[in-house]
Simulated assay, not measured.
Amino acid sequence: MPGDVDDAVRALLLLMPRMVGRVKKIPVPEELRSFPLAPRHLSLLSNLLLDGPMAVNELAARLEVAPTTVSLLIGDLSRMGILERREDETDRRRRIIGIAAERLPAIRDWLAPGAAAWRKALAPLTPDQRRMFVDTLLAYEAAVSGEEQD
């Protein structure tokens, strides 16, 4: 186990490329290969897969983007036949977004193993340790992108 910061950095410099390489090798299901899916689409699909259908504003909050951005993504995926929109029975002005039933098995087979792997890795941690892990990854992302706050 890494002891000091440099030992941890060395361990992560070995680990991160392996993790990214393994994720990139996860095959896209045959029925989805023809679609121009980007990482932003996968985040949206993963949230719907984990938590089920939800409103645009809920998706926007989870993805930490504006509702208009989510609406554009939903439009893309709806035109591809990957998402379905339906009226909210309690408020007909709201639309509930879900994965199209015919696409759900392929998306589940593709994305659910990654969520299961995160659950397995995070389950032994306390809530505070999980928060620290996520915060550390967010800090790393910010530092790499040049967006870190001093």
Rank of each mutant, 00 (worst) to 15 (best):
M1D: 11
P2E: 01
G3I: 06
G3P: 03
D4K: 03
D4F: 02
D4C: 08
V5N: 10
D6T: 11
V9P: 02
R10C: 09
R10Q: 06
A11T: 11
L12M: 13
L13R: 07
L13C: 12
L13N: 11
L14A: 15
L15D: 06
L15S: 12
P17G: 01
P17L: 00
R18L: 09
M19W: 14
M19Q: 14
G21D: 07
R22L: 12
V23S: 05
V23R: 05
K24M: 11
K24Y: 07
K24F: 08
K24D: 09
K25F: 02
I26W: 02
I26C: 03
I26D: 02
V28H: 01
E30N: 01
E31M: 06
L32N: 03
L32W: 05
S34P: 00
S34Q: 14
F35M: 11
P36Y: 09
P36G: 07
L37Y: 05
L37M: 10
P39N: 02
P39F: 00
R40P: 15
H41T: 00
L42C: 12
L42Q: 13
L45D: 05
S46T: 10
S46E: 02
N47V: 10
L48Q: 04
L48R: 10
L50Q: 12
D51C: 08
G52H: 05
G52A: 01
A55Q: 15
E58Y: 07
L59E: 07
A60N: 11
A61K: 12
A61H: 13
A61V: 02
A61C: 06
R62G: 09
L63F: 01
V65Q: 08
T68W: 01
T69W: 04
T69A: 13
V70L: 01
S71G: 12
L72Q: 15
L72D: 13
L72C: 04
L73D: 14
G75K: 14
D76C: 03
L77Q: 08
R79V: 04
G81E: 09
G81I: 04
D88V: 00
E89F: 07
T90H: 11
T90S: 13
D91S: 10
R92Q: 08
R92A: 12
R92P: 15
R94D: 10
R95N: 10
I96Y: 06
I97R: 06
G98F: 02
I99P: 15
I99D: 03
A100P: 15
A101F: 06
E102N: 14
L104K: 12
P105I: 00
I107N: 07
I107H: 07
P113W: 00
A116D: 11
W118E: 10
W118K: 14
L122M: 14
P127I: 00
Q129Y: 03
R130F: 04
R130N: 01
R131E: 14
M132K: 09
D135L: 09
L137F: 11
L138P: 05
Y140M: 11
E141H: 08
A142C: 05
A142P: 03
S145M: 08
G146C: 04
E147K: 11
E147Q: 15
E148W: 12
E148R: 12
Q149I: 11
Q149E: 15
D150G: 10
D150A: 12
